[in-house]
Amino acid sequence: MGVNQTQSSDATPTQLADMLAGNLDVLFCGINPALSAAHAGHHFSNRSNRFWRSLHLAGFTPHQIRPEDDHTILHHGCGLTAAVERPTVKASDLALHEFRAGADGLERKVQRYHPRFLAFLGKPAFAAIFNKRSVAWGRQQVRFGGAEVWVLPNPSGLNRAFTLDALVSAYRELQIACQAP
C-alpha cells in the first residue's frame, strides 16, 4: 500500500495517507500528521519521534520499522490514521472543532476496517471526540466504531513527560491485550 499525498496549489502537502487493512489488531490514531511527516510522505518521520522505536520495543514488530517503510506496519496487524488530517507543526495548532469534525470520518474508518483496538496517541483527540475534561491512560470504558479504545502517550519528541521506557511500558500493555482472546 503506497502513500498518497494531495498537493495544494502552493505544493504544501495537505494529507498523509492512512495505512489501513481489514481486521487489524490495532489502529493507531495520531492527533494529526506533523508537517514534516506530510512533506516526507511517511508517518512519524521526524527523528525525534519515538513511535517506531516504542512499537518495536513493546513487541508489536520484530524489528524497528523505518519511517520510509511505514506501510509495512500492516504486516504486523497494525494500522495508522489520524484524528485530524490537516498537517501542522504542533498539535496545539489544531482547534477543538477540527477534532469533532473528524470524529465521523474516523468512526467510519473503524467500522469499515474492524480493528480490534483503536489506540489514540495522546489525550487531545480522545478528549475532544468524547467531550471529556479528564482522561486516564490505558484502556477506556467506551467503544468507538465497534473497537475497544485505548489512550497511549504521544510518542512525539516534544512529549518530555514520558521517557522511552514509560512509552514502551504503556504500549506493551496494549500489546499484551492484543494477545488475549
Rank of each mutant, 00 (worst) to 15 (best):
M1A: 12
M1W: 06
G2P: 12
V3N: 13
V3A: 14
Q7W: 15
Q7F: 15
S8H: 10
S8Y: 08
S8E: 14
S9L: 15
D10Y: 11
A17L: 05
G22P: 08
L27S: 04
C29Y: 01
C29E: 11
G30Q: 11
N32W: 15
P33T: 15
A34Q: 15
A34N: 14
L35E: 15
S36M: 07
S36N: 08
A38P: 11
A40R: 10
G41S: 09
H42D: 12
H43C: 09
H43G: 10
F44N: 10
S45G: 06
S45A: 15
S45W: 08
R47I: 09
R47Y: 11
R47V: 15
N49E: 05
F51I: 05
F51S: 09
H56C: 03
A58W: 03
F60Q: 00
T61W: 02
T61Y: 02
I65K: 12
I65W: 09
I65H: 12
R66E: 14
P67M: 14
E68C: 13
E68L: 09
D69F: 10
D69P: 04
H71W: 09
H75F: 03
G77K: 03
C78Q: 04
G79I: 00
L80S: 03
L80F: 02
L80Y: 00
T81M: 08
E85P: 01
E85V: 11
R86C: 12
T88G: 11
T88I: 09
V89P: 04
V89C: 10
K90G: 08
K90A: 14
L94V: 13
L94M: 12
A95G: 04
R100V: 05
A101Y: 08
A101T: 11
G102W: 05
R108T: 04
R112H: 05
Y113T: 00
P115V: 01
F117L: 01
L118T: 00
A119Q: 09
F120G: 06
F120K: 11
F126E: 04
F126H: 03
F126D: 02
I129L: 10
N131T: 10
K132N: 09
V135E: 13
A136T: 13
R139M: 09
R139A: 15
Q141L: 08
V142Q: 02
V142I: 07
R143D: 02
F144C: 05
G145F: 03
V151W: 11
G157L: 06
G157D: 12
G157V: 12
L158S: 15
R160L: 14
A161C: 07
T163F: 03
L167M: 12
S169F: 06
S169V: 06
Y171H: 00
Y171K: 07
R172L: 09
E173Y: 07
Q175V: 03
Q175Y: 09
A177G: 04
Q179N: 09
A180D: 06
P181R: 10
